[in-house]
Design a protein around this nucleic acid. Structure first.
Lengths: 227, 227
DNA sequence: AAAACTCTAAATGTTGACATTTTAACGAAA
DNA sequence: TTTCGTTAAAATGTCAACATTTAGAGTTTT
């Protein structure tokens, strides 16, 4: 752990130092620059980042709320360890929340928002053709799922997924190449999901999304046996 | 807002002051002693509780993670306002998570844990007969649902529900008498849920729980029209 | 009277020092 | 060698003062 100021989001000028630290550390944890299970020593980090411990501690509390670190009183904070059990539990939770989200989205998304979904999967399809890809680029996959979740217009589900679950999943995927989204199935399934939303069919949307996530879960489960 | 040390959990001797403040404020918010929408002034509260602002700020960050307060940089923290829209979104989220939880619980709960479920609903039934109750006591209702959620053995769902959703629902119920759990249906539905778990039937458990929560949601929706 | 400006007071953000607890190294005893 | 106890260093928890930003009262201007 040395210079994580460098790999944080490009423009990182939040209004407060504490907020800035939160996103800096978040990125460092997701990329693995701060390793899973590593202890977050306040003194060392404060010195290295050249800030005082106050804002640092606040950032740590926020990361705690994002499930990225675990804090034990009088002992300090450690980066969460994503083992087989946790990642499967994350996908079970995601299955429940995201299938509900897409059902709501089928009722509430504006046609303009649906257009944006189309543009995203068209871009996915184009990228794959051009770049001989066997995988949907992770960034585009996140964008797609976040658009659907936001389309639910349910702030509680949105926060649970985007603020508290996706970060962990991003972390897992970033640090495990094998966990990428396979293209063949995923793109087809994305199209099916958009189709169901377009038809304003919540039930179809729900089962389609459920299957999409179960497939992803199964892929991970299979590949983690080998590991 | 004056003496909220008094109404916090009975034994409130957490290991750190910051943790103690967290649960004190949590209780004060749930009961409404600190009103919805109220500004949490750090200076005033620190003076009143006789602590410095450091631990207080950390407690506020934690409450932010529990969705109990909203924080705007350079402006401070306010208690969340539970309006019609939010409470209905909470119940939609709960429906998704808790129906998945009970499906998992049907597979993973030990027979000993199922016995505890029986004892809890038996107590509910007894209390209602004796106390001429038209309502399941809130505390007992929470215990029942928490036992089911823990039975899922899924830490992610457990945290999302118990740490981030139930507090808001408790807050709503505590401050709205009309939102209590009706006895007639609820007790029957609780029995049906336990039955499904006992039969190790995840699908039945899931639909039963889903219906149970949809009913509660509908009751709230109806009564909030009048309001 | 309404809008805009100034300035003061109050609030949040940040810092460095102090207090207390934990950890681990070291040495003594079984 | 292992275990237990002591002790010093390092880490977390807490505090009070300082810095910066925001909000509002009062005044001026249109």
């Amino acid at each position: 752990m040395s210079e994580f100021a460098t790999l944080s989001s490009v423009t990182n000028s939040s209004s407060t130092l504490s907020a800035e630290l939160t996103s800096t550390l978040r990125d460092a944890i997701i990329t693995g620059e701060i390793a899973q299970g590593a202890k977050l020593s306040e003194a060392k980090m404060a010195k290295e980042l050249d800030v005082s411990r106050g804002p640092l501690r606040e950032a740590i509390r926020r990361l705690e709320g994002m499930n990225l670190i675990q804090h034990i009183p009088q002992q300090g904070a450690r980066v969460v360890v994503i083992n087989r059990e946790l990642i499967l539990q994350l996908y079970d939770t995601r299955e429940a929340l995201e299938s509900k989200a897409v059902a709501l989205a089928a009722e509430k998304m504006s046609s303009q928002e649906i257009d944006e979904l189309h543009r995203e999967i068209d871009a996915q399809s184009k990228q794959m053709r051009e770049n001989s890809g066997a995988f949907v680029p992770a960034e585009s996959d996140y964008r797609f799922h976040e658009m659907v979740v936001r389309g639910s217009k349910n702030k509680v589900i949105e926060r649970a997924l985007i603020h508290e679950l996706y970060n962990l999943i991003k972390m897992f995927r970033y640090q495990n190449e094998f966990a990428n989204t396979s293209s063949t199935n995923s793109l087809v399934e994305h199209r099916q999901i958009v189709y169901a939303i377009e038809q304003r069919d919540p039930v179809l949307a729900e089962v389609t999304m459920k299957r999409h996530i179960v497939h992803a879960r199964e892929r991970i489960e299979r590949r983690m046996l080998v590991k």
